[in-house]
Amino acid sequence: MTVRIVVVSHSDKIADGAVELAAQMAPDVMMVPAGGTSDGRIGTSMEKVMAALETAAGADGVVVLTDLGSAVMTAESAMEFAEGSGTVLLADAPIIEGLVAAAVAAQGGASVHAVRRAAEATHGYPAPRPKAENYAAAATAGKEPGTQTAAGQAAGEPEPLAPDASGDFELVNLAGMHARPAAKLAGGLSALDADVTVNGVDGASMTGLMTLGAGKGSVLHVEAYGPDAERAVEYVAGLVRDGFGEP
């Protein structure tokens, strides 16, 4: 099973269409559209959203994507009414990009928090360099005492840490970094416990990766921080080597 997703829009066409689009990249993820009012007008319906939340309720949790203003309020109200039925998280993300990123992350087996993170990362801001204190706890739990001390000393200092893992990979597929590879990359990375930058942008942000405009032959410079840093770099390496499964 995977995390499930509810899409709340003022328009049933937008909700249905967004789900249809995302399903292409995440065929195994249950996505439930809740668009328009109960009588088919433009607006949001508490009834529809609650029914969608009920349909989607599952052991792995639910992430909710919304469009404009009152959709957020309706979703929050529905969550208040339906409280006690497992983890339900509201993602603050653009509805299409956020949904695609969330769906791909869910398809990859990400946790409910990671799926929301994947959706929210589509705001497309470049990733800030992780601060030492963010990983002080991770380092304490880590295996190398050396790292632990280094992280502890660096805490509070303005200087950025050296990445825990890094690598450079040349794109070999013809189309380079377009939507599907970006979704795969961001989806997988957001499922890991690591902050990753790819040529300076947030590796968990599908839109961020797409703004790189990286074509065939471009080199991706990957820097990863956190407990899963090495796995993150290997993940990028694997995908790039296989041309994202494309010619």
């Binding site: 319906s45 508490m46 203003g69 009152s70 309706t74 109200s77 009414f81």
Partner: peptide
């Protein structure tokens, strides 16, 4: 609360709905 949240459609629905709830 339930009726207003379901039928109002605009922002007033969840606002009044939450108030009554």
């Amino acid at each position: 609360a339930m009726a207003l949240m379901s039928k109002v459609g605009g922002a007033a629905g969840p606002l009044y709905g939450t108030a009554f709830l």
